[in-house]
Design a protein around this nucleic acid. Structure first.
Length: 339
DNA sequence: GATACGTGGTT
DNA sequence: TAACCAAGTAT
């Protein structure tokens, strides 16, 4: 009888699993749910390389969920600065507080799914990896591997239903966490988007996508929309060695993060160019920054003043600006001013 | 289902 | 270099 997909893949994983800071050795259970959850949230739409230093910093500073639950949201947001998708940090604090109030992590997929910031993927991944539950874990790696394995040529996102069903069918009852991580490792290192290393793939013999001769045809993705180009202005207001920082409100772009005051640019519209103070302003230059759905050219203007701007904000010592937790866009603007 | 939401690495 | 892409979620 031929070996199953899961047996073959688990054998491969036992030999080739990546060693990652949040990962126990394959098959060895004592996996701290806090570390699994934290890493999974950080890894949402984010590369392993980008996550590593943040994971190290967070676990050093907040070693368990109780410590994170007790942290001021503002400090967690600042520590997240540079990692992107900042609603993750807001939800991270909320979830930590719910778990702390509960006294422990929910240990079922449904219980985890109810926490803020845990969607279908993350709830399944934590249930499987941290609690050994059988769960169907589907991320972009699994989508790609499964779409190729079964030559699913329905375009995304309509293909998700079939992909999920196929993934369910090959997910084993035991070691579901290792199986999920094996699928993701395979997708990240072998079954890559552009030049898959089919000669090294443990599943190549049964892969229907490979049999077609064009494995990279799967999964079929819709064409992308063009990104609009936006313009805006940020204002560097300096007084006695400090710069005026504001906190961005709401739940939109960079919400909750410290920032330079700006002219109200959004992903949908250019800024008004209106300054928070009377001039004279000095033009410093501009920085370019790409967001998911818009590219921004941000002009930077500077002024030295003795007065405090209207509205909420704080004078932040320039020498310790690194600790302010500015998102990358404003870190670039600050770098330009200080260069 | 479609859209909003960051950033840095890779090709 | 300009796309493309990454361990997605919320609305």
């Amino acid at each position: 009888m031929a070996a199953t997909v899961s047996d073959t893949l688990l054998d491969w994983y036992d030999k080739h699993a990546r060693e990652l800071p949040w990962r126990a050795r394959p098959g060895v259970p004592p996996t701290d749910p806090y570390r699994v959850w934290l890493s999974e949230v950080m890894l949402q739409q984010t590369t392993v390389a980008a996550v590593k230093p943040y994971f190290a910093a967070f676990t050093m500073r907040w070693p368990d969920v109780a410590a994170l639950a007790a942290a001021p949201e503002e400090e967690v947001m600042a520590a997240w600065a540079g990692l992107g998708y900042y609603s993750r940090a807001r939800n991270l604090v909320k979830a930590a507080r719910e778990v702390a109030a509960l006294g422990r992590f929910p240990d079922t997929e449904a219980g985890l799914r109810a926490l803020p910031g845990l969607g279908d993927y993350t709830a399944a991944a934590v249930a499987a990896i941290a609690f050994g539950r059988r769960a169907v874990v589907v991320d972009a790696n699994v989508e790609r591997v499964v779409a190729r394995l079964f030559a699913i040529d329905t375009p995304l996102p309509a293909a998700r239903k079939a992909i999920r069903e196929r993934t369910d069918a090959v997910t084993p009852d035991s070691r579901a966490g290792d199986f999920a991580q094996a699928m993701m490792d395979l997708g990240a290192t072998i079954c890559t988007p552009r030049e898959p290393r089919c000669l090294l793939c443990p599943l190549s013999e049964t892969c229907e996508g490979r049999r077609t001769g064009e494995p990279t045809r799967f999964p079929v993705k819709p064409a992308r929309k063009a990104k609009p180009q936006r313009r805006g202005t940020a204002f560097w207001i300096e007084r006695e060695g400090s710069v005026w920082l504001v906190r961005r409100e709401g739940e939109g772009m960079l919400a909750g993060m410290r920032a330079l005051p700006d002219d109200g640019w959004t992903a949908r519209a250019d800024g008004t160019d209106a300054a928070p103070l009377e001039g004279p302003w000095t033009d410093i230059g501009a920085v370019r920054h790409g967001f998911t759905h818009a590219d921004l050219e941000l002009a930077v203007r500077r002024i030295e003043t003795a007065s405090t701007p209207p509205g909420e904000g704080e004078w932040w010592p320039i020498e310790s600006l690194d600790g302010a937790g500015l998102p990358t866009l404003f870190a670039k603007a600050a770098r330009l001013v200080l260069a």
